[in-house]
Design a protein around this nucleic acid. Sequence first.
DNA 1: CTATTTTCTATTGATATCAATATATATAGT
DNA 2: ACTATATATATTGATATCAATAGAAAATAG
Lengths: 148, 148
Amino acid sequence: MSNSTEIPFATTLLVRDTCLCLHAQRAARALARLFDDALRPAGLTNGQFSLMMSLNRPEPPPMGPVAKLLAMDQTTLTAALKPLQRRGWVEVFPNPRDKRGRLLRLTPEGMRVLTAALPIWESTHAALEKALPEGNAERLRQDLQALA
Amino acid sequence: MSNSTEIPFATTLLVRDTCLCLHAQRAARALARLFDDALRPAGLTNGQFSLMMSLNRPEPPPMGPVAKLLAMDQTTLTAALKPLQRRGWVEVFPNPRDKRGRLLRLTPEGMRVLTAALPIWESTHAALEKALPEGNAERLRQDLQALA
DNA sequence: CTATTTTCTATTGATATCAATATATATAGT
DNA sequence: ACTATATATATTGATATCAATAGAAAATAG
C-alpha cells in the first residue's frame, strides 16, 4: 500500500453530495428541529403531533395501519404511544373485532392539546412554504412520497 | 359543543397530505431502512456509514463542523461516536491547536470497514436512482438541500 | 375440523436524537 | 492583565428508532 487512504477524497465528496439517504436524514433532522421548537409551547414534538393528528378519525384505527401511514416500524409506534398514554392524551383499547389487536383513540384532553397545537403547525408550515420558491413545496411532497 | 371532534377530519387529511415535516420523516425512515438493510453485512447503519465517510479527509476534522455537515446536534454526534470508538473504527483525540476541542479520525480498521461498505452503498444508491424517474434524484437533492 | 401459517402487537436491547446543563478553553472588551 | 462573553465538547434524561424475538389470535390448507 502506497497510501493509508484507501478511499479517494473525491469519492467522499461524491457520496456526501449525492447520497439521497444522507440528504433525507439531514432535511428530516432540520425540519424536526424546526417543528419541535415551534410546537414546544404546546407540549408536543413533531412526531407526537403527526401521530396524534393521524388518530383524529371517525373510527379508532388499529396500530398497524397507523404505523404504515407514518412509515415507521410497528415497535416504534408501540414505544411512541407510551408517553402519550402516560399523559392521558391517547387511549389504547382492545379491538372487539380482532382480539389480537388494539385500537387507538385521542382522549378529550388529547384533543384539546392537539387543537391548541394546530395553529402552531399552520403558521410554522405556512412560513416554511413561503420561504421556498413557488411550486417547490408541492414538488418536494410528490418526490418524497415516491420514496416512502 | 355539538360534537366531540373539535378538529374536522378534513383538516387531519390536509395536514397528513401537506406537512413537509411528516413527508420528510417518512422518507427518511424508509431510506434509512433501505440502506440499513443493505449495509448490515458490512456491520454499519446508514448513519454510521455517512459519519465515517465524512471522516475520510486529508486532515482530521473537529466535531463541530462534522455535526454541521450532517445537520445533527453536537450531542448526537458525541453519542454516535461511542459505538464506533468502542469497535476501534474511529479515534477521538485532542486538538493540539485548541485545547477545548477534539479531532476525529478513522482507524486503519475503520477504513477497511468503510472500504468494504462502499460498493454496497454504490449498488444500493444506483438501484434507488434507477427506480426514480429521470432527473428526479438530482431535483430532490437540490430541494432537500434547501431545507437543511 | 385440525394443523400450519400468517397477522397483530409487546418486550428487550442497542443505537439515535435532542434539550438542559456543566466544564474548560478561547476570545473580546476594558 | 482582568473580566465578561463566546465557543467546543461532555453528561444526563427523555424520547425515537429498529432488529430480534415471543405470544396470542385469526386465516388458511388439508
